[in-house]
Design a protein around this nucleic acid. Structure first.
Lengths: 348, 348
DNA sequence: CGCGGGGATGTTAGCGCTAACAGGGACAGT
DNA sequence: ACTGTCCCTGTTAGCGCTAACATCCCCGCG
């Protein structure tokens, strides 16, 4: 299919010679220009196939000014969400004929962010995608001035740049609604770190859903995404429960904390979901394998990537485009169940 | 520092005009050529700074044939290891003045792999890095013929291409040794999937260390990286223990399985590390937060990335270079302790 | 004092491609 | 039959840069 011996790189005129046309006609065929006779087009296409020709991107970029490359900058890629976002973005970019150049920042300072964007500029990428879930990253992004089209991902409305994201508020409402629907009188919430827009949005959603149902809004339990903080939250909530509080349902801002909470509840002799129902957020690969399998909220990273790239393409074409946030989905597993009929005044 | 108004892209002759030299002299300064008078060099550098000039990479790539970009292809980036590898690679590439173009494959077929490498070729990257821990990916890589320098990462010797990796065998020996040193008479092993070279290497290391210590080699328990399989392994090992087998120490091929095993042992009424000591592999971010905090083996991904890029640079320069695998380290936490003094004939 | 040599700089020719313009043939309308 | 038009194809001129060659000047040496 492709010539193995890399004797000399093929160029357009090699194809032209073989097809008996000028190199410009080859260019027209390659770029899908309309005014080429079907017969000619076919011959050129055959020559391209037979030779295994590929246009040189550097030459193309030099004359068109476009590299068909998108830069992606993120601060933290260890976490499941960011890693999945990268995957979704890459896939969507590839589908649109773009490749993704990735930079992972060590720290979310304006300097580091500026450096990254600057490097992208030097690389002459066509646009920059930035993941900015944390406030410092979002702020740093604000301070970066660049002629490059910039699209932020998952910044949750913290920036006015064109942005795409998953609807965190809706996700939190979904989780909370599910628990209320199961008959729980209220839902406790273990938050993520305060400097994360996503964490704040999840609090907002949880609160909104409780308010809509007329349920009590319990004091939040602070967490920081780590299983350790989930564990602590579990101890705390168990204590509150012993003190007579109505702790039968807990919604945690991520699955890792749910993992810790599950362990703590187990140690406290509370059974999930018989005594307490638990919902997480993220749908980690291990979520179905926890004991019990975790009910959680899944974000559609493929769709997120798709919309991000769509937005980039729109900006590149000079179109204004406003995209709605991606709706998340609830995955009901075994960690949630009907509210226990404890000292509740009203039974079924 | 940098002109905000992107009126028109600056080119070399703009700098040349300002510095009162020819564009070629500017080129020489930019590329650090020796024969430029200090005085001239200084003037040119000042002009570059004042104007905020940046060489056009496309033009440069066109004439030099090098894009200073490395392609990275991986099949699975969701897992902790691969994601960290990406981060390490990017950092090292950036430090060496290269940028990383990433492709994530949906499936490890030869076709998909070929496609990815082909796209890199079209993009005229300087080299390709491939993550091939699974056999199918490694095989696919074998079938790909390309003029591009190719370096594989974490393939564990399954490919003869120049490769870098973490020493999985050594890691497994470290874990096993640690348990034996604590006085355990033997160590049980929960494996990873059979089609993973890493998983096989860990079995090899575990077996080698047991053999070196003259300890019994118990039948392995099959796992597949998932917490679920770890949970099953926990049930199985607890049963074996009840049947009189000497199950006081378990080494699992990854932390996720350890997570499942921990849950199973807890359910079985076995306490870790009093009854059973547990060691994982990977040092997941949640490892320190499990109950109990997990003793595990950490791979140095920064160093891995560094060596991978070093190898790429060597190949690019035509140098032969053989790099030793990166040694992993053992992190002792609370999940391991001295062997219980059960029905053992010899006590302390 | 003339000449050779080497360091500093300038000039020229592409790298492979696309855009803009030029040309040529076929067809329709008069 | 002639002209205008449209479609197809070819020719030419760069895109911004680096490599190779040309030039110039200054210095040291015979």
């Amino acid at each position: 299919m492709q010539p193995e011996g890399a004797s000399r790189a093929l160029v357009m005129s090699d194809v032209a010679a073989r097809a008996g046309v000028s190199h410009q006609t080859v260019s027209r065929v390659v770029n899908g220009h309309p005014n080429v006779a079907p017969h000619t087009r076919e011959r050129v296409e055959r020559a391209i196939r037979e030779l295994g020709y590929r246009p040189n991107t550097a030459a193309r970029a030099l004359v068109t000014g476009s590299t068909r490359t998108i830069g992606f900058v993120a601060v933290n890629i260890n976490q499941y969400g960011p890693a999945q976002t990268l995957v979704g973005l890459e896939r969507a970019a590839r589908a649109a004929g773009y490749s993704l150049s990735v930079t992972v920042l060590d720290e979310a300072t304006a300097d580091a962010m500026h450096d990254a964007v600057d490097r992208f500029l030097a690389q002459s990428v066509d646009a920059v995608l930035a993941l900015a879930t944390y406030d410092d990253a979002a702020e740093a992004l604000h301070l970066v001035h660049t002629p490059l089209p910039l699209v932020t991902v998952q910044s949750g409305g913290a920036v006015e740049e064109p942005a795409v994201g998953v609807d965190q508020v809706a996700g939190a409402r979904l989780a909370t609604r599910h628990l209320l629907d199961l008959g729980h009188r209220t839902v406790h919430h273990v938050t993520g770190p305060a400097d994360s827009q996503e964490a704040r949005d999840r609090i907002t959603g949880w609160r909104a859903e409780l308010a809509a149902a007329g349920a009590d809004v319990p004091v939040t339990v602070y967490g920081d995404w780590t299983p350790s903080s989930g564990y602590e939250a579990g101890r705390l909530l168990a204590a509150r429960r012993r003190a007579g509080e109505d702790v039968t349902a807990v919604f945690l801002a991520n699955d890792q904390m749910a993992l810790g909470l599950l362990a703590a509840l187990h140690e406290e002799g509370l059974e999930v979901p018989r005594d307490v129902s638990v919902v997480g957020f993220d749908d980690l690969p291990e979520a179905p394998y926890l004991t019990p399998p975790l009910t959680t909220v899944r974000q559609d990273f493929a769709e997120l990537g798709h919309r991000a790239v769509e937005l980039v393409l729109a900006r590149l074409a000079g179109r204004e485009l406003h995209l709605e946030p991606v709706p998340p989905t609830l995955l009901v597993r075994a960690s949630t169940g009907p509210a226990p009929v404890l000292a509740a005044p009203a039974g079924v």
